[in-house]
Simulated assay, not measured.
Amino acid sequence: MSIHKLTIIIPAYNEAATIGPVLETITQLKLNASVQKEILVVDDGSRDGTTARIQNFIQEYTGENIQLIRHEQNRGKGAAIRTGIKLATGDCIIIQDADLEYDPEEINILLEPVLKGKADVVYGSRFQGGQAHRVLFYWHSVGNKFLTFLSNMFTDLNLTDMESGYKLFRREMLQNINLQENGFGFEPEVTAKMARIKGIRVYEVGISYYGRTYEQGKKINWRDGIWAIWCIVKYGLLRK
C-alpha cells in the first residue's frame, strides 16, 4: 500500500513532564519509505502546564506539521482520540500516548506491515516478541490478558494484547467507524467494531513497554477494567 502521510494522534491529559520528550522524539523520527508526519496533539483539559509546553514546542519547531487541539474540559482518552480522528488527513492513523510508556521510535515497526501491503490494522503487542518491557503489576498483566481473551471470544480474532495503546489504522476505515466511548473503553470498542469490517487484515507486532507506576502518573485503574468488560460484551453482542 502506498502511504504518503501518517497522522500521529497524541491524546494528552496532565502530561507536562513527558509531552516534551514525546514530541521531541516524534519530530526527529524518520519514517520508512519517506512517509510524512502529521502530528495532532489533543490536550484533554490539562491543568498542569501541559498546554503551555505544547504551545512552546510548536513555536520552537515551526517547520513541523504539528497542531494543538484543546478540550476546555477533560472528556477522556476516547473523546480526545475521536477529535483527532475527525481532523486527520494522513493515509493512516496511529495513536501515540503522551506518557512515554510506548516508544515513538517504534512507530516504524507498526508501519511496516502496511507499507508491505499486508495489513489494514496493526496492533503493538506488549506480550509478543523480544522487546524490552518494564516488570510491573502482576495483576494488571493478568487483567490485560483476560480482557484480550474475552474480546477475542466475541471478535474471533487471536490478538495477544487488545488493550495495547499502540494501534495503527487506515484512516478512511477508522473515520467510517461510529465510535462512542469517551474513556479507556475506546480500546475494546474500536477492536469490536473494526473486527466486523469484511475482509479486514489485522496484524500484531512486538513492541517495548516502559510502564509507569501510579506515583509516576499512571491513570488507568480497576474501574476501567470493569468498564472494559462491559464494553467487550456490549459491542460484542451488537456484532450482528
Rank of each mutant, 00 (worst) to 15 (best):
Q73S: 12
I54M: 09
G165Q: 05
S125T: 10
A16I: 02
N221V: 13
W222L: 02
N158Q: 09
N74P: 07
Q128N: 13
M153Q: 13
F154D: 12
V233S: 03
E163F: 05
G129P: 02
Q216C: 08
L136F: 05
W230R: 06
D103P: 12
V202M: 14
D44N: 01
E72Y: 10
N152L: 08
T18S: 13
I200A: 08
Q59T: 14
P21M: 11
I58C: 09
N144S: 08
I109V: 13
K234Q: 13
L136C: 10
C92R: 00
P21F: 14
L237S: 09
I54D: 04
H4P: 02
L115Y: 13
V233G: 06
N176A: 11
K30D: 04
I177R: 07
R82H: 01
F57L: 00
L68Y: 10
G165P: 03
R134I: 14
T155H: 07
E106R: 06
L157H: 15
R134V: 15
I197F: 00
E189C: 07
D161F: 12
E112F: 14
V135K: 08
I109G: 04
R171V: 01
A12W: 11
M1P: 01
I232L: 05
N74E: 11
R201L: 03
R70G: 00
N221W: 01
L238C: 02
I81K: 06
R70V: 15
K86M: 15
R171S: 04
I19G: 10
T213P: 04
K5Q: 12
G63E: 15
Y61T: 09
T7V: 14
K219W: 08
T25M: 02
G129E: 11
P188R: 10
C92W: 01
I58S: 13
I85D: 14
A16P: 09
V233Y: 03
S2C: 06
M194A: 03
L87E: 15
W230T: 07
G225I: 15
R223D: 15
H133D: 12
G211Y: 02
E24K: 04
P113G: 10
G84T: 08
E189Y: 12
S208L: 07
K77M: 00
V142L: 14
D103F: 03
G199K: 00
L23A: 05
